[in-house]
Amino acid sequence: MSTGMLFALVGALLFTMGAAGVALPGAPLRRIVAFNVMGSGALLVLVGLAQRGGGVDPVPQAMVLTGIVVAVAATALALALARRLGAPGARAASGDDD
């Protein structure tokens, strides 16, 4: 098995674990971390599969850079929401029933 495929397989596992973590109810911070695990998994599959042949493909590398920045943005927004929810006076209705 090539290194690229190994990356892709690990990425598949990370994605699955992360997605389950986002889907399950729980503390917002835990779900935000899970989202990051999920995103990293998907990006690892993207670069891993493209490098199965051994060479480096710059196109998915650039896509992954874009994907990381998008994940940073989403994480920041999620943290801002979670933080405001956790702020005093906002706690009353923050029960996670989804």
């Binding site: 892709a8 998907a42 599959v45 993207l46 599969l49 493209a50 998915p60 896509m63």
Partner: peptide
């Protein structure tokens, strides 16, 4: 992930 699989 779907896009990654299709590119792969």
């Amino acid at each position: 992930l779907g896009v990654a699989l299709i590119y792969g």
